[in-house]
Nucleic acid binder design. Structure first.
Length: 815
RNA sequence: GCGAGGGUGGCGGAAUUGGCAGACGCGCUGGACUUAGGAUCCAGUGGAUAAAACCGUGUGGGUUCAAGUCCCACCUCUCGCACCA
């Protein structure tokens, strides 16, 4: 009887006692760093997590069997809003206690899944020993001018009561809670990720092991565009107005200018007579009902003439300046030159306010036309192809000192302050005399006090804690006030994969030599939801640390795999919908091996999949079938004295299938993680042997064949169903652990068939089948095919036009 | 609107890259064993048909001895970005 509970607890204990999954930092073996995205311990794990960790575990165990020194660590992203909110929701229990108890639970859940983590490397981001170094990273950025404080418009979530980074705002709503975000003017800390925009964009090309969709998302987010900055003079004031354009070739088609409503230039560009009208317009578009829809692409284009004019530097024309709702303050210079003939938005605006439209690119059959063509009405550049003229026009602007080549990015700096309790305090103090002073490295960590009222109020809870707040200035020794905001959790998670290398290190975040040896991560596995946030931040922090001399590689993650989600009843699992599948229940009912195998069997791992109870039952049946098969054949192998026996044709074919399956599953793992077909390969093979054993009298069974099958199959099962594989391995009389066994090799010779079945087709339709010896020449096959009775009947004496023999097992006769 | 990836039985999904479509699993049908079956085992299962011929990979065309796979046009779904000048 297959008893999963007994087998699984037995081997989990043995693995733990023997410490076989502890990875030394240095080894003769080649290294392999396998990493899964660590969880927020804001509750218990669901089967979606199990999918992530199972894929990671299969990879780790497979690579271990392939002779690598595999690091497979685990940790908890345990600071931040989710944990804090959950703690508050559960009756104001302290976030630390809440999080710790969740970590306990999760750790136990994972141990029951038989994941081969090196628990000595476990890392918890809220612990002082970790966040001390998160603060250290802040200081390193500060030293290099990459951490700065500025006042400006920020995204504020009224429900979470904190600011959010741009990356955390989705469709104008808070990424976490879905509350519409409002814009506030606040003094906040930023990381200057824009300094790395160029490299973050350029190095995407080097991420050959990343899925394309993630790379495209990062590229879009960074939003690099090449163009020119052009300076227009203001006729009335004599001052200048700079704009950014990607289409300097259309400069001669400019018929008006437009500035963003938020632009600080607005007041000086507004003539006295227009002030009231402009005020009214601003009030209107900032009203609550218009505030969000204004930023949608299909909002109507609206604006007001400011009463002033710009002078087009290339042709001296006077053009009116407008304020317009479709101009984004944060992009470019917050002002544009408008070319209605060649831009749909400018066109709509021009139509609405009856502004002139001048075509300068010939090509399209209607306006607006934003494609390529021949320039006209464009002074010295008329008659040229617009693409070719582009460079010449920029050179012309530079020569006349009215413009220059410019690169623009959509990426904006990373806002890292949070007005919440559960995070790493920003290590800064404010001194009346010295101003902003960073906390010296020797004084780290700046401890997060435990006893504070941490309910969200809109201000950091630390700002009410007098004992935390008051300190002395590290520079002058005078009284000083601590920064009370904490850091975004994404700062914590942007370097955890480095800490895993030296998790216990006291004097530094990690040891350079070790990190340089282990990194980059060979395989990173997680959800697509982190395609921009976490993955972009981690790339950024890696580059910052590299430039600070703390590590020597450019990119943290060599290969990335994004697994699909598991749905239930057509929806994402959530507590509120009551459709969460608990791994504990499944482990109890079917065992961890079955759960793991089912999750891998559900479909291609990168695709979303629907959880079906009947599906896991099917996999459980397979496991039992496998168990029963081995219970039957192992005693036969044990008591057999038979040494070697020639294989019958049937046995040869079965053995061939063993080696073919071995080859197939090895390819499927090495290829694109096609674990679903690996599992079906196991099933097929077990079916074949079950049938063989059932249909053959016991005395006629080829024990050598059974023995080979067992010794080839069980190690292959080990990464997938590790507990059962260990148990079978032991039952076979082998020494533990099969987890340390070598990945079985296959014999190419055994894959060569003795006999092959050939499909005989006439005009592409199968009309007959014959079995022939393998290795016949095409001519011989052709002859046999034409001699086949059924074929002869169909040909009825006629001569075929042509006979194709394809890949040895298909013959097509054309008549 | 722009970008990416998909459309194969009742369902999840396979198909040495142009060579016998539907592997494997679920579900379903029939049978066996049973007091019982939502357990297990056996057989069957793309559609249509008494059976064969026949029809079948979103649609229409094309290339080829041969197309799920290649080419052209279209329909449709999912995801991401979305006034980025």
């Amino acid at each position: 009887m297959y008893d999963h509970e007994k087998i699984e607890s037995k081997w989990q204990k043995k693995w733990e006692e023997s410490g076989i999954f502890h990875t030394p930092n240095h080894s003769d073996k080649p290294k392999y760093y396998s990493l899964v995205m660590f969880p927020y311990p804001s509750g218990t794990l669901h089967v979606g997590h199990v999918k992530n960790y199972t894929i990671g575990d299969v990879v780790s165990r497979y690579k271990r069997m392939r002779g690598y020194n595999v690091m497979n660590p685990f940790g908890y992203d345990s600071f931040g809003l989710p944990a804090e909110n959950a703690a508050i929701a559960h009756g104001n229990i302290h976030p630390e206690d809440w999080t710790r108890s969740n970590i306990e639970t999760i750790r136990n859940q994972i141990k029951k899944l038989g994941i081969s983590y090196d628990w000595d490397r476990e890392t918890i981001t809220f612990e002082e020993s970790y966040y001390k170094w998160t603060q250290w990273i802040f200081l390193k950025l500060y030293e290099r001018g990459l951490a700065y404080k500025k006042s400006g418009p920020v995204n504020w979530c009224p429900s979470c009561k904190t600011v959010l980074a741009n990356e955390q705002v989705v469709d104008g709503k808070c990424e976490r809670c879905g509350t519409p975000v409002v814009i506030k003017q606040l003094d906040q800390w930023y990381f200057k990720i824009t300094n790395y925009a160029e490299e973050l964009d350029a190095f995407i090309d080097k991420l050959t092991g990343w899925p394309d969709n993630v790379k495209i998302m990062q590229r879009n987010w960074i939003g690099k565009s090449i163009g020119a900055e052009v300076t227009f003079k203001i006729k009335e004031s004599g001052k200048t107005l700079k704009i950014f354009t990607t289409r300097p070739d259309t400069l001669w088609g400019v018929t008006f200018m437009a500035v963003a409503p938020e632009s600080p230039l607005l007041s000086e560009l507004t003539s006295i007579s227009k002030q009231n009208e402009v005020e009214e317009f601003l009030t209107k578009i900032n009203s609550t009902e218009n505030r969000f829809e204004r930023f949608s692409a299909d909002a109507p284009k609206e604006g007001v003439f400011l009463g002033t004019h710009a002078i087009n530097p290339v042709n001296g024309e006077e053009i009116p300046i407008y304020v317009a709702n479709y101009i984004l303050y944060e992009y470019g210079t917050g002002a544009i030159m408008a070319v209605p003939a060649h831009d749909a938005r400018d066109y709509a605006f021009a139509k609405k306010y009856s502004l002139p439209i001048r075509e300068v690119v010939e090509g399209g059959n209607q306006l607006p036309y934003d494609g390529d063509g021949i320039l006209k009405n464009s002074g010295p550049f008329s008659g040229m192809k617009n693409r070719e003229a582009m460079d010449k026009i920029i050179a012309y602007l530079e020569e006349k000192k009215i413009g220059k080549r410019t690169v623009n990015y959509k990426l904006r700096d990373w806002l890292i302050s949070r007005q919440r309790y559960w995070g790493a305090p920003i290590p800064i103090v404010y001194c009346d005399k010295c101003g902003i002073v960073p906390v010296p490295e020797k004084d780290l960590p700046v401890r997060l006090p435990r006893d504070v009222k941490f309910d969200p109020t809109g201000r950091s809870p630390l700002s009410y804690d007098e004992r935390f707040l008051h300190t002395t200035c590290p520079k002058c020794g005078g009284p000083a006030i601590r920064e009370s905001d904490t850091m975004d959790t994404f700062v914590d998670s942007s370097w955890y994969y480095l800490r895993y290398v030296n998790p216990k290190e006291k004097d530094r975040p990690f040891i350079k030599e070790d990190v340089d040896e282990w990194l980059p991560v060979d395989q990173y596995i997680g959800g697509v939801e982190h395609a921009i946030l976490h993955l972009l931040y981690s790339r950024f922090i890696t580059k910052v640390l590299r430039d600070g001399g703390y590590l020597s590689f450019d990119e943290p993650f060599k290969n990335l795999f994004t697994q699909g989600m598991i749905y239930k009843d057509g929806a994402k699992m959530s507590k509120s919908k009551g459709n969460v599948v608990s791994p504990d229940e499944m482990v109890e009912k079917y065992g961890a091996d079955t759960l793991r195998l089912y999750i891998l069997f559900m479909g291609p791992p990168e695709k979303d999949a629907e959880w079906l109870e009947s599906g896991i039952e099917g996999v459980y049946r397979f496991i039992v079938k496998l168990w029963n098969l081995f219970e039957f054949i192992l005693p036969l192998i044990e008591k057999s004295t038979e040494t070697k026996r020639d294989l019958s044709d049937e046995e040869y074919e079965i053995r061939r299938k063993v080696h073919m399956t071995l080859k197939k599953i090895t390819n499927d793992i090495e290829g694109d993680f096609r674990f679903n077909t690996v599992v079906s390969g196991f099933m097929e093979l077990v079916n074949i042997f079950s049938d063989y054993v059932k249909s053959t009298p016991e005395k006629d069974l080829n024990v050598g064949l059974l023995n080979e099958f067992a010794h080839k199959l069980v190690p292959c099962l080990s990464p997938f169903i590790p507990h059962l594989a260990e148990e079978l391995w032991e039952m076979m009389g082998e020494k533990p652990f099969v987890a340390n066994a070598e990945w079985p090799s296959y014999d190419e010779d055994a894959i060569k068939p003795r006999k092959i079945e050939v499909a005989l087709m006439v005009n592409g339709k199968v009309r007959s089948r014959i079995v022939i010896d393998a290795g016949l020449s095409e001519d011989e096959i052709r002859k046999i095919a034409l001699n086949d009775d059924k074929i002869k009947g169909i040909l009825n004496g006629k001569n075929p036009k042509k006979v194709f023999v394809a890949s040895g097992n298909v013959v097509n006769i054309v008549v």
